[in-house]
Design a protein around this nucleic acid. Structure first.
Lengths: 190, 190, 190, 190
DNA sequence: TATGAATGAGCTTTCATTCAT
DNA sequence: TATGAATGAAAGCTCATTCAT
């Protein structure tokens, strides 16, 4: 399974070779077809789905158990986002896979939208709304329908750029995080 | 050339078939190799490069010939960015190709960085800096090193999401544009 | 394997077609690549190597188990050489393949040198030396460093000419054998 | 023309590329077909034929104008043979081409036999016969029908081995020349 | 005489997939 | 559950050859 995720991530769906997945996993091609009778597509779907689930638990845990102002929560979530983009490669791989193949596998787009993007946007919107109510943020800030996406975009884009260009050439995620927080806090200030 | 861009866009680099490019273009495979002796890779490079150049001329023209406040220029540029993401499919295709294949072809990453990303960031920074000097924006706003990337990210991400999810499911670029402008103008205000 | 040798022999390395080898062998091209992942070159190497080994066993057996004077042994070996050049086509094919492709595949040259040429020269030299010691041949005959090669050359050349020209037009190997033996016996006489 | 000879020699008939010949010669493929309407085969034939003619003039000149004993003439001719194999690469190329393609182009075999091999054999036989008559060599030495071929073989084989193995690994042509002369002079002595 | 665009057949190679064991 | 031999359909690429200019 890990083998499949890695192979797909490194080469894309079309270029990924069943034989390579098998040998990464230390088994033979035949066995792959035993477990995934649907072949490459079957394996691909399984690889993606198996990756998505554990992904958002941390963010939910953080938001659920948070004690502090909404300002601080937003900052913590943003830190988590930028932090995450610097650490675990599993999520990067997944993001890239989705990016690459989403338009050729509509179900993937659906999956991404419902399991990753929408929850993130909802979470962001809620935090801003609660912050407005609490006086942390300007009243009505959360009414702007595109705000959540604008808040999320730099975080995701930072990860995308790093995947494309490598950590050295991509815009620094630390600098982006600072500028991002600064801009948001000023822009949302009451 | 158009044929190549289309085929690559529809199928990705790995799945694109030389024969398909040839027949789309109404020539034979042999001729493709006459003009692109390096084969598929050569053709791919040529397709990308041929697309990149005309892309930034418009933005440069706009910035160069602009008469009005820096605030208005920034707004116009952002409109251009979001506008662009809504129109010509060609640039979307290009962006996607770069995103997907950049890490497999380091020269593409280099190309993207030097011809698209860096000029955009420079342009954004310049406008903010000039705006600060003119009193349109808060003094020192342009000193934040990650600011340009944060300003650019929502525009690019809007395009990425639309490519992945389709115009209906992706966050509305109109809404994002409004929220983005609102956030920036408040966040950069003196 | 036989199929490969035949195809290579008939058409040369460059013109040999993998499909032809496969169909001669009654299998598909795919299977060829299953067993010879290195492709045509791999198959070629295997074909050559598989042919070389059995080739010199006979000569060694003859020399090892020989009872008689060294003069008679040398005669028997020369007969074997000329005899061999008249019989099995397989060895001729092999020789030709080596001749043709040796400079394009240095490992083949190495193979020929170490498994065919050098053992032959060593064997010839030993027999002459032993013959000198036994008084069959002139003392010091084996000290001439090029002698072994000169002894061997007419045998090999006889085969080469027959391959090139066919049995009718090439110098008769029977006549060469007689003249060769006569010249040697006189030239090496004490 | 030179370009063609080199290309054919380096790659063999099948692997030789018309484009390579053209570019070696500094012209375009089209022009090749202007001069050799029969295509590759035409060019090949022309290349070979244009090489053969100048080849034997030197040997004939030497034999014709020689003043000295037959023993000395034979020695001079053998020296010429071994010497030649060390110098001009043109003849090596030709020899290899003939070796490689003779059985696929019967006319080449014919060409080789009539223009190179037969004259050489005839020359050798004549010298021996004249030497016998003059008392330089044993009476009746030239009657052995295979003698000329046996005399010629080490010279040719020396060249073949050097082509196959390179000058370092092939039996030394100097050593072969010495051993060859020694053996012949003893073997043909009255 | 010279060019080079254009062709198309044919080649090697790859790889998802199947299946007997 | 596990293997690996076997298949066959593509696909990338090459190259001799043609032909309009």
């Amino acid at each position: 399974m890990d083998a499949a995720v890695e192979e797909f991530a490194e080469r894309g769906f079309a270029s990924a070779r069943m034989a390579a997945v098998a040998s990464r996993a230390g088994v033979t091609k035949g066995l792959l077809y035993h477990y995934f009778p649907g072949g490459k597509l079957d394996l691909f779907r399984a690889a993606i789905v198996g990756c998505v689930n554990p992904l958002f638990e941390e963010a939910r845990r953080l938001a659920a158990g948070f004690s502090g102002s909404r300002r601080e929560l937003l900052e913590a979530l943003i830190d988590l986002g930028y932090g995450r983009t610097e650490m675990e490669r599993r999520e990067h791989i997944l993001l890239k896979l989705l990016l690459i193949e989403a338009d050729r596998f509509p179900e993937l787009a659906e999956l991404y939208q419902s399991t990753m993007l929408q929850p993130s946007l909802d979470l962001a919107r809620e935090v801003v709304k609660a912050g407005s109510a609490a006086g942390d943020f300007r009243p009505g800030a959360a009414d702007e329908p595109g705000l959540a996406a604008v808040l999320l975009a730099p975080i995701v884009m930072s990860a995308v750029w790093r995947m494309m260009l490598g950590a050295e050439k991509a815009p620094s995620s630390q600098a982006m995080r600072n500028a991002h927080l600064d801009l948001i806090m000023r822009g949302l200030a009451p």
